Simulated scan of single mutants.
Amino acid sequence: MKFLKLTLIILFTISVASCSSDDDSSNPSSANISGIWQGESFDYTGTSTTEILGESITTSFVGETENINYTLTFSENPNEVIADGSYDVILTTTLEGQTTTQTVPGIDFLNSGSWELDGNTLTFIVDGEASEATIETLTDNLLVLVISDTQEINQQGVTASTMIDAVLTFTR
C-alpha cells in the first residue's frame, strides 16, 4: 500500500509537470493555447524501482483514466492556468509476475498556477516549482501533451526511482 501511495504521489507530481509538444506547428502561439480545455484522457505507462537493504524490486504500471471531469483554463496577461476537476485511474501493476488492477477514485488533476510557452515547451509554475511539458499537438480544438519524466526519492535508506511516459489529451 505504501508503494501505491508513493507511485500515486509521483504520478501527481508528474501530472503537475506535464510535458507537451506540437505536431501541427513548430512554434505554437499563446493565442492558440488560451481558453478552456476539457480533459479527454490521461494515460501513462512506467516502471518503478525500489531499492532497500541491497534488494531491488521493479514494478511496471499502466494507468488509464475514466470518469474524466477536469478542465484547464489558460489565460494571458497574466499567464495563468486554472485547473478544475478530477478523474479516476484504473491502475494495473505488475510485480514479480503478479498483476493486480485497482481503481483509484477522485484524483485531482493539477494545482492552478502560471504558465510560459517557449517553442513547443510549455512550463507550468505551481507553488513556486516549474515543470516543463512538450506540446505534441496544438490545433484550434485539440491539445496533446506528452510527458516523459524520471523522479527519484531517497528516504530512510530506501531509494525509489520512477520513470513514466504519459499522454494527456484535451479538446475544446
Rank of each mutant, 00 (worst) to 15 (best):
L145G: 13
E51N: 11
D88M: 04
V146N: 13
E116Q: 10
V126R: 10
T58G: 11
L143Y: 04
T94W: 10
D140W: 03
V144Q: 12
F109G: 00
I82F: 09
W115E: 08
I164K: 05
S30L: 03
E129V: 10
I125M: 11
T71V: 04
K5C: 05
P28D: 07
T71H: 01
L72W: 04
L142C: 02
F3P: 11
S112W: 01
V158G: 04
Q98C: 08
E96N: 13
Q151D: 02
V167Y: 02
F109H: 05
L138V: 09
D43V: 04
T162S: 07
S34D: 07
F170S: 08
T162W: 01
L142H: 05
L4P: 00
D127H: 06
F12R: 15
E66D: 06
S86C: 00
I9D: 14
G39W: 04
T100K: 07
D140E: 14
S26F: 06
S26V: 06
F12Y: 15
S34N: 03
D84E: 11
N27Q: 10
I57L: 15
V81Y: 03
F61W: 08
V144P: 00
N154Q: 07
N67K: 03
D43K: 04
K5M: 04
S30T: 10
N111F: 08
N141G: 03
N111W: 05
S148T: 12
N141S: 14
G97V: 10
T45M: 09
S25C: 08
T92K: 13
